[in-house]
Design a protein around this nucleic acid. Sequence first.
DNA 1: CGTTATATTGAAAATGGTTATCAATATCAA
DNA 2: TTGATATTGATAACCATTTTCAATATAACG
Lengths: 145, 145
Amino acid sequence: MKKHPAEQLTEYLAGQGLKSTSQRDTILKIFVDAGRHLSAEELYARVKKTHPGIGYATVYRTLKLLAGAGMAEERRFEDGFTRYEFKAAKGHHDHLICTRCGEIIEFENERIEALQQDVARKNRFLVKSHKLELYGLCAECQGKR
Amino acid sequence: MKKHPAEQLTEYLAGQGLKSTSQRDTILKIFVDAGRHLSAEELYARVKKTHPGIGYATVYRTLKLLAGAGMAEERRFEDGFTRYEFKAAKGHHDHLICTRCGEIIEFENERIEALQQDVARKNRFLVKSHKLELYGLCAECQGKR
DNA sequence: CGTTATATTGAAAATGGTTATCAATATCAA
DNA sequence: TTGATATTGATAACCATTTTCAATATAACG
């Protein structure tokens, strides 16, 4: 049975001998509700609106914590920004990134994954993870000049 | 007729109304000779050995310049380091990256590229560039614990 | 319940890679 | 040569992210 993110976090903290705090719960909730691909700064901005008392560092720390707990993934896109993505139980996926408006579209393609394994095999390489990003213009932005 | 990198750079500089300098020539030569995937810091270290007078900033600036000239490509890998890759006339390729020893193996696979286009088409996305990186252990490192 | 050891917090300082500043210098067209 | 200007080296500035540290909150224990 799948648990709420909040419970997941609580269990993780207990298991690690760490403590539950209202800040962590708050940040997690806002992170999950916000959708995906948030930078620490963006998340902090959202947190600040309803919880002005929470500090910048705590947002950063919590994001790292969530990554450690396997609940968030840290991603560096080619534009230089590091963003975090909430990691539900859903499978691996890759990204289409619009370089004009910043939109990020997710996709998965198991044939590509299979071919990646072929490549790895030929190089006697053991793949642990991968990253595939296609940069260009989304449908919207192709019309604009 | 293909030109030496040095000539390429000279032509680019002249075309842009910029000036040729011994520092730029030196840095370019060392960059090209060094192989690929150098960080600015690594390149600076090599430059310093034979040309202690050349400054840190000049290495950074020259790398940016080369990127602007289309002679180098800036790449951010997931480990957080930005590296530059000398860009010869050779086609696009992707990377296998060993997370233990840092080795970087290049590969190309046109079937993967074709599938990427399929994905893009389905999303009405116009791909300008892409990045595919497989992280894991190289043959060497799989043996070690 | 209080107590207590210790994890966490917020604010601010520190860090690390990269870029900007600036006076001195080199380049190149005239 | 000269002169306008691009470039350089040293250093300060930047900016996102981390670390530090004293104050505070948490959770286990008595």
